[in-house]
Design a protein around this nucleic acid. Structure first.
Lengths: 239, 239
DNA sequence: GCACCAGTACTACCATACAAGTACGCTAGT
DNA sequence: ACTAGCGTACTTGTATGGTAGTACTGGTGC
């Protein structure tokens, strides 16, 4: 639910390729700035160029891929300006949802959110980073769902993609997950107590934490970032 | 400027097809719910099915098109839920931009906005509807530009597309344009006087006017709307 | 008259072949 | 040693043929 664009019932191989590519880009299996050739991907995935190509076009629409005709296709570098924009979009949509949610939320819904927090607690104890971020996405999405804006999540997810790449690359410091969980807890607490302004404030500062992570990544992996106006070179994919 | 996805310099025929299709969908040359076949479009536009197909996939990503594998491709009907979502997104992003803009705007920028208002005044006098809405887009976009969020405009434009189809279909009542202009003027006035909350209020109620137009269209052209969960029929394109 | 069933015509999906264009590397000339 | 220029190998763009699957239609049995 919540994805209005899912107008079909069957699964095409294009769908598979899109999911696979998005996954690889987000978890940095394919590094920002590296080239991705249609032929190469087609061979790897065992399909023809057509579905690969169509997937790349769609991902280019989301800004994760850049296509230069007759030159090559590249994974977008992390652009500080794009990151700032993505952050702005995410912040605007999530805080607006939150304000509406405060007025309508009931005890059962609060229970749903607290369940997610409990599971995050477990993930923190076992230091399961992947699980934690999976739950992070689930929490944020659920809050928008409950506010009745599940379809706006598509936009947030797209914006989030640009931010998430950076976050995943940052070394998870021991207490990072714990601090994030605490922030989540604060948000839900204020949400359940009906303090609109305070809840918004907590959410906003929580979302802005990502800038800290990004600067950290930029320090240790500057090649992931788009510093100049230059385009990646064709043989950038050689690792 | 303002379109980060424009990573290329050459113009491919896919670009042309995309622009043409988006235009036709927005101005209702192709009616909501009608089918668009790859073959048919390819013949009409004098290109092969490939660029047409790729364009349709991209537009499906924006929600303007729905593709059912092995069944057909259809122009999205106007979905009230989607409209509400689009409105929410637009409102959240534009008001957030406006609040930031109040703090940073200078006299020159205010002048730029007032120039647009003057041109709208002319459009109202000559009852040039197309020109008026062109300037409407320009005004809203410029405000986001000035706030430094030009790239978020891409999102707003996508959301706006769902709203705009309805608005274009509504009969332009004599004083509609005049009323909209007055609202624009109020927003810019409050923006220049630094009244953040009042400016936001004016913008918000201005944006919500679209619901009035949409209800009007729904009354006279209910077939444009997605009332049930049913999918359009294949021969829906017979006019 | 109505319901069911099979055939046909249409759809988008995928694979493949060809065309247009760019970048890189080698070679020849300076 | 260095630079200019050309050729090759690579890229994406476009065109087209065949395939799998669905919807509509006409006929048949009830």
């Amino acid at each position: 639910m919540g994805d209005r664009s899912k107008a079909r019932t069957t699964t095409t191989s294009r769908d598979v390729v899109i999911a696979e590519l998005r996954q690889r880009i987000l978890d940095l299996s394919i590094k920002p700035g590296s080239s991705v050739s249609e032929n190469e991907l087609a061979n790897q995935l065992g399909v023809s160029r057509t579905p690969v190509r169509e997937s790349l076009i769609l991902l280019a629409g989301e800004g994760l891929i850049e296509i230069y005709p007759q030159v090559g296709t590249f994974v977008s570098r992390i652009d500080p300006a794009a990151v700032a924009d993505a952050q702005f979009i995410r912040e605007a949509l999530e805080t607006a949802s939150l304000r509406e949610l405060v007025a309508t939320i009931d005890d059962g819904q609060i229970g749903t959110l607290r369940d997610i927090l409990d599971q995050q607690q477990l993930a923190v104890r076992s230091q399961d980073v992947d699980r934690f971020f999976e739950l992070d996405e689930q929490l944020h999405r659920t809050m928008m769902d409950l506010a009745g804006h599940d379809s706006a999540w598509t936009v947030v997810r797209s914006a989030r993609a640009h931010l998430e790449r950076a976050r995943r690359a940052s070394l998870p410091v021991a207490d990072t997950l714990g601090r994030m969980l605490q922030q989540h807890t604060t948000i839900v607490d204020r949400l359940s107590s009906g303090s609109t302004d305070e809840a918004e404030k907590a959410l906003r500062s929580h979302l802005r934490e990502v800038f800290h992570d990004i600067n950290e990544v930029k320090a240790q992996s500057p090649e992931y970032f788009a510093n100049g106006r230059s385009r990646p070179t064709r043989r950038a994919h050689l690792s």
